[in-house]
Simulated assay, not measured.
Amino acid sequence: MHQDSRRRGNGGEETNVDIPLLRLVNVSRTFPPSSVALRHASLDVHAGESVAVTGASGSGKSTLLAIIGLLDRPTDGMVLLDGMDAGHAPPRVRNRLRRQYVSFVFQAFHLIDHLTVEENVRYALAIKGIRGVQSRTLAQRALALVGLADKAGAWPADLSGGERQRVAIARAIASPPRLLLCDEPTGNLDSVNSRLVVDLLHRTTAGDTTLLVVTHDEDVARSCHRRLHVADGTVREGEG
């Protein structure tokens, strides 16, 4: 689903403008002294799209994801979220936009060992300013959605790899993000759990949530609406 926004034309009339949720314009990222991780990347991603990002290790995929998720800044170019220049905004603004727009799911799960499953989900909600009864309600709803309502009081160490990744998904979608970024979310899982996680990602992001998945898994890539291929820091549409 594409976001439809109305703007006034020169004559004052309302016109429909299809504004991408995410737009990159000639984005490059260079690391000193001269390592180029991204080269003039330009792309539009609309609300509700699912996009797979493929490419060899070291091609620039993780750098692309970090820039989109406002964890890193481009050396050149623009990163626009809902038309706002987020790439070069002050840290306070970037932090606010990240909380407002973005959630992450990582290959390594990144659960907090000394917190229960429900507490892990609620911790992420607290970062977004959601606490108390609302936090508990949203966390329990998210865990039910990923089939782990009965594991709310469990410790991460007592879960299987597939269960831990499902907790990570629940944590990411408890307060539905506009942009869900996943870095190899099935990389540590067997084929059965991989299919389950892929299904969950698509099911839990149905609607206006945009899904970007960095992956080496062909099944994951084929499940998405579009594919971006990264090679030597260059981003192209399609399989490369």
Rank of each mutant, 00 (worst) to 15 (best):
Leu125Asn: 08
Arg236Asn: 02
Gly238Asp: 04
Val105Ile: 15
Pro74Met: 09
Val197Tyr: 01
Arg94Tyr: 09
Ser62Lys: 13
Ile112Gly: 08
Arg164Thr: 08
Asn120Lys: 06
Ala168Lys: 08
Ser103Lys: 08
Asn10Lys: 07
Ala56Trp: 00
Asp85Pro: 15
Leu80Gly: 11
Asp44Ile: 08
Val121Phe: 09
Arg7Leu: 05
Asn120Pro: 09
Asp76Ser: 15
Arg6Val: 14
Arg39Tyr: 11
Arg195Ser: 08
Gly60His: 04
Pro156Asp: 10
Val213Leu: 02
Gly11Tyr: 00
His2Trp: 06
Pro33Gly: 10
Gln165Ala: 03
Ser62Glu: 12
Ala66Val: 06
Lys151Leu: 06
Asn26Met: 04
Asn120Trp: 01
Gly129Ser: 07
Arg122Cys: 09
Ala142Gly: 11
Ser42Asp: 00
Ala172His: 07
Leu64Val: 14
Val36Gly: 02
Leu64Thr: 13
Leu212Thr: 06
His229Glu: 02
Thr137Tyr: 06
Leu65His: 14
Glu239Phe: 03
Leu138Phe: 07
Phe104Ile: 10
Arg6Gly: 00
Gly240Ser: 06
Leu200Val: 04
Gly69Met: 10
Gly132Lys: 11
Arg6Thr: 14
Gly161Glu: 10
Val17Cys: 04
His88Ile: 14
Gly11Arg: 08
Gln100Ser: 15
Ala37His: 04
Arg23Lys: 14
Ala142Asp: 14
Arg166His: 10
Glu118Met: 05
Val121Gly: 10
Thr205Glu: 05
Thr54Gln: 14
Arg171Phe: 02
Pro32Leu: 11
Ala170Met: 08
Lys61His: 10
Asn26Val: 04
Gly87Glu: 07
Gly48Met: 08
Phe106Ala: 01
Ala154Pro: 11
His40Ala: 13
Ser103Met: 06
Ala66Cys: 13
Ile67Tyr: 12
Asp183Leu: 02
Arg203His: 09
Gly132Arg: 10
Gln100Thr: 15
Ala142Thr: 13
Val133Tyr: 10
Gln100His: 15
Ala41Trp: 03
Arg164Met: 14
Thr137Leu: 12
Trp155Leu: 12
Asp113Asn: 12
Asn120Ser: 07
Arg141Ser: 15
Leu80Trp: 03
Leu159Trp: 11
Ala139Val: 10
Met84Arg: 09
Asp4Gly: 00
